[in-house]
Amino acid sequence: MTEPASIEELDTLVETTACKQSADRPYGDRAQILAQVDDHSGLLDVPVAVCCPNCGQAVTLYERGLPNVVPYFDTACTQCDVDLRTWCAVGVDAAYLQIVDPATLTTMVQQFWDDWLWSGITNSKGEPRTDEYTDRFATKTAAFGWNWKVTCPLCRRTRTALERDSALVGGNLDYHHWSHDPDQGVCLCRECHNIIGFDTYDTELEERAAAWGFDSRHDLQVIRLALRDAAVTGRPVGTRPATALVNRYNLLQSPDRVRQLLGSISTDGTLRERFLDKRLVAGIGANC
Rank of each mutant, 00 (worst) to 15 (best):
E3F: 12
V14Y: 00
V14E: 01
R25D: 02
P26N: 02
Y27L: 03
D29V: 09
R30V: 00
A31P: 04
H40S: 14
D45Y: 05
V46P: 01
C51P: 01
P53L: 05
N54T: 02
T60E: 15
L61I: 06
V69Y: 13
V69H: 13
V70P: 09
P71R: 14
P71C: 11
P71T: 12
P71Y: 14
F73T: 04
T75A: 14
T78A: 15
V82Y: 15
L84H: 12
R85H: 15
T86W: 06
T86L: 12
T86K: 15
A89S: 15
V90R: 12
D93Y: 07
A94W: 12
L97T: 05
I99K: 13
P102E: 11
L105E: 08
W113H: 08
W116Q: 12
W118M: 04
W118P: 01
S119L: 06
S119F: 03
S119T: 10
G120H: 08
G120W: 07
I121C: 07
S124F: 14
K125L: 15
E127V: 15
E132W: 13
T139C: 09
T139V: 14
K140W: 05
A143I: 06
F144K: 02
W146A: 03
N147C: 10
N147L: 13
T151K: 15
T151Y: 05
C152S: 08
C152M: 09
L154R: 04
L154T: 00
C155P: 10
R157C: 11
R159Y: 00
T160I: 12
E163A: 12
E163I: 08
A167V: 13
G171S: 04
Y175A: 04
H177S: 03
W178H: 09
D181A: 15
G185F: 04
R190S: 14
R190C: 04
E191Y: 04
H193R: 09
I195K: 00
I195G: 01
I195H: 02
D199C: 11
D199K: 13
T200N: 11
E206S: 13
E206K: 15
E206I: 09
E206M: 11
E207S: 14
R208M: 08
A209M: 04
R217G: 01
H218I: 03
H218R: 11
I223L: 06
I223Q: 03
R224L: 08
D229E: 07
G234F: 10
P236F: 05
G238I: 01
T239I: 10
T239A: 09
T239G: 02
P241Q: 10
T243Y: 07
A244E: 04
L245K: 01
L245F: 03
V246W: 02
R248T: 06
L251D: 01
Q253P: 00
P255I: 04
R257N: 00
Q260K: 13
L262P: 00
G269M: 03
G285Q: 06
